[in-house]
Amino acid sequence: CHSECLGNCSQPDDPTKCVACRNFYLDGRCVETCPPPYYHFQDWRCVNFSFCQDLHHKCKNSRRQGCHQYVIHNNKCIPECPSGYTMNSSNLLCTPCLGPCPKVCHLLEGEKTIDSVTSAQELRGCTVINGSLIINIRGGNNLAAELEANLGLIEEISGYLKIRRSYALVSLSFFRKLRLIRGETLEIGNYSFYALDNQNLRQLWDWSKHNLTITQGKLFFHYNPKLCLSEIHKMEEVSGTKGRQERNDIALKTNGDQASCENELLKFSYIRTSFDKILLRWEPYWPPDFRDLLGFMLFYKEAPYQNVTEFDGQDACGSNSWTVVDIDPPLRSNDPKSQNHPGWLMRGLKPWTQYAIFVKTLVTFSDERRTYGAKSDIIYVQTDATNPSVPLDPISVSNSSSQIILKWKPPSDPNGNITHYLVFWERQAEDSELFELDYCLKGLKLPSRTWSPPFESEDSQKHNQSEYEDSAGECCSCPKTDSQILKELEESSFRKTFEDYLHNVVFVPRKT
């Protein structure tokens, strides 16, 4: 048989008469490798580009789960590009990614509803959504962080984005990388972005840091009482949809009607710091009717980097990364020049730590249904340095008659930039024990000054392991946590139920 035959053949030295091919099969003959313009397919066939392209389009058009959109890589027609490569849609070739590779997620039936953290986790790592997304989240724990972890990498949506009755959302900033909504599939009414009845939605994105392009379709905003109209108009300008909307697409009466839409800028007039305090004062603000001013709200939190936005980490279910302080308005003076500047002394802060701070007014709604208010920009203030805590785990070892090696770990709280350490030492008198000992005694162990690591005695271990207080009263049991108490109650309830079950099964009433 021919060298490319495997198993047997019907005619000697003829690659077209093989029972099976050793390498690849091409047009009725066995070959060692697939010549151009053919590609290896499933490690035994040679196919042309049209064959591989037909497989790709067949799966793409069917949208069946589990099928493969075949691509070409290293002269092979394979189910998908290997790690580190992405497909070129024009020629199906796998090309190296520039940075992290995109991950295209194809949605069944063309859309997916995100109504819980669990459903959001199914899209973790996706960068391109081939379909439409509907966000409908009523509640949950730590929602802002969970949504950002699972949806934060999405850069492109081919269909539309719909935010509907998501009472738990305060902001859409968890879509931190969303840059493009194509609108290839539109919501009824030709809408590519749809926001309806979101009672706590206050911000779409921080438009000073976020760009969003909507290729096709219109915007729809109705019944978002805490979303200011200025935020919607800003989205029109940034996304390129200005002029597409009709009169009733953006409701003037049901958007922002319960919001404090600040239209003035508060400026800080005085800032002073110490290692654990920050004193702030800002310019006074009074609405047209000074009785509408209820006070100020001061927001602050630790910020290692200057990239904080107002609604980071917030949701309507209680999660809030900001510390909020309510401040009463100052006494009002008739003389504008003698107006008191409101302020606040922030206490209990960490030394040498940068804080993000902003302040906003708290006002009631005027009778004319106009909203007044003022808010400052987010500023960054760093507390002063102070003395560091003591170095940890000092170790001293003498390696000769004239040297001592000293080692330690950095302090747990540096409280500033540590530039150097101060080492103090003092000579001590020799131990009298060394002169009084009889060095001729056998088995004498000389006193040693070398360091030995501390260890816990058996008594201390027994005390720590004991669940009861000892007789001397030195140790006591740790208080039980809520989960331990709940577990004990469940076990007790189970024992009672099981005992009742045994009584009912074992003891049967005697027939009379």
Rank of each mutant, 00 (worst) to 15 (best):
D292V: 02
L108W: 15
E237K: 13
K301F: 03
T273G: 07
R272W: 14
T113S: 10
P411A: 05
S192F: 03
K301N: 15
S400N: 15
T254N: 12
K409R: 11
R182S: 09
L172S: 05
K234W: 06
Q203I: 06
T273C: 11
S402M: 15
Y167C: 03
N150F: 08
I232P: 06
L265G: 07
N141Y: 13
G159L: 01
D292C: 13
Y285K: 02
R165E: 06
L293M: 06
I378V: 05
G217P: 02
K234E: 15
D276G: 15
C228R: 00
E264V: 04
K267D: 05
I157P: 01
Q339V: 08
G125K: 07
D292F: 00
Q354W: 13
K162Y: 11
D367T: 07
K103R: 11
V397G: 15
E302Y: 11
C261I: 03
K360L: 00
Q199V: 10
R179W: 14
K253R: 13
N255K: 06
K209G: 10
N307T: 08
E264W: 08
E187N: 08
T215F: 06
E236P: 07
N248P: 12
R182F: 11
S321I: 03
Q245H: 14
S400D: 15
P336Q: 13
T383E: 01
Q216V: 08
S260I: 04
L293H: 00
E283N: 13
Q199Y: 04
I181A: 01
S402A: 15
V128L: 15
W207R: 14
F299M: 07
T213L: 07
G189K: 03
P287S: 01
M297S: 09
D249Q: 04
G159S: 04
V390M: 15
E231Y: 01
E283Y: 12
K407F: 07
F299E: 09
K103N: 06
L161R: 02
W286A: 03
E368P: 05
S239H: 06
E264R: 07
S132G: 07
I163P: 01
E155M: 05
K103P: 13
I114Q: 01
Y355R: 00
Q339F: 11
F296C: 01
Y300F: 06
N141T: 11
E155H: 07
A145M: 09
K112Q: 05
S389P: 00
I181L: 11
S401F: 11
S398I: 06
T383W: 01
Y285P: 00
W322H: 12
T118R: 12
V390L: 09
S158I: 11
R179M: 13
T254L: 09
F175I: 13
M346D: 01
E187I: 13
L107Y: 12
L143N: 05
K177E: 15
G110W: 07
S366H: 15
L349E: 00
P284M: 13
T241I: 12
K277Y: 15
Q306R: 09
G140T: 13
N224R: 02
W205C: 06
F268T: 02
R165M: 08
Q314Y: 04
Y160I: 12
G131D: 00
P351D: 03
Y305G: 11
K253F: 14
A120C: 03
G256F: 04
L108C: 05
K407L: 08
H341F: 13
I114F: 02
W352R: 02
E155L: 10
S171G: 13
G131K: 01
I188R: 07
I163L: 00
E310Y: 14
G256W: 03
L147I: 13
S401L: 11
E184R: 06
P388W: 01
R281N: 13
T309R: 07
L331G: 14
P388F: 02
N263F: 02
N136W: 08
I405L: 14
L362A: 03
E264T: 03
F299R: 10
C126S: 01
S208F: 11
D206F: 06
S269W: 15
E155G: 09
Q382D: 03
A374R: 01
E231K: 10
A356N: 04
K267E: 03
R247K: 12
G139C: 07
L219M: 04
S274C: 12
Q258N: 05
T254W: 13
F311N: 11
G217W: 11
P304M: 13
N141H: 15
I134M: 05
I163T: 04
D335G: 09
K226Q: 03
Y167Q: 04
N387I: 12
A356T: 13
S400E: 15
N190Y: 09
T118Q: 00
P388N: 02
S208V: 11
E109H: 15
T361P: 03
N211V: 10
Q382P: 09
Q121T: 03
E368D: 09
K177M: 10
W344V: 08
N387R: 12
D206Y: 05
A195D: 04
I157M: 07
I214F: 12
Y194I: 13
I135V: 08
F358M: 07
K177L: 12
L108K: 13
E283L: 09
Q354A: 06
Q199L: 06
S166P: 03
L279R: 11
Q354P: 08
K234L: 09
T323Q: 15
A385R: 09
L180F: 11
T364N: 06
S171I: 03
G217K: 14
W352E: 04
Y285L: 03
S376D: 02
W207E: 06
I357E: 00
R347G: 09
Y300D: 01
R176F: 05
I250D: 15
T273F: 11
S119F: 02
L252Q: 12
C228P: 01
P225V: 04
V325M: 15
E302A: 15
R247S: 12
V117F: 12
I232C: 10
W322Y: 08
L345R: 05
L147F: 10
S319I: 13
W205G: 11
L362M: 08
D257I: 03
N320P: 05
R369P: 05
R176D: 07
D335W: 15
E246P: 11
G125F: 09
N263K: 11
E156T: 07
G217D: 06
F174N: 03
I378K: 08
D315E: 15
E156L: 06
V324W: 08
S158Y: 13
T273M: 13
Q216M: 14
G125T: 05
L212I: 13
N334V: 08
L252C: 09
Y305T: 07
Q403L: 10
A385L: 12
P329R: 13
S389V: 00
K162M: 03
L161H: 01
A168K: 00
F221G: 05
F268K: 01
L153I: 10
S401E: 10
R164H: 15
D249T: 15
L345W: 14
D312V: 12
A374E: 02
N307M: 10
R138A: 15
L161C: 06
I378R: 09
R291M: 00
E187L: 11
W352V: 04
Q245T: 13
Y160D: 03
E302D: 10
L219A: 12
E187M: 12
D249G: 11
S389Q: 01
L186P: 10
Y191I: 15
G131F: 00
K360S: 01
E122Y: 13
F268D: 01
F299A: 14
N263D: 05
N200Y: 05
K409A: 09
T118W: 03
Q216S: 07
C261F: 02
S166E: 05
S338T: 14
A144S: 15
Q245M: 09
G240P: 03
I188A: 15
S402D: 09
W286I: 14
L349P: 01
C317P: 08
H106A: 06
N130C: 00
E122I: 01
E368F: 09
L204P: 06
K253I: 14
D257K: 09
E237Q: 05
E156V: 15
I214Q: 08
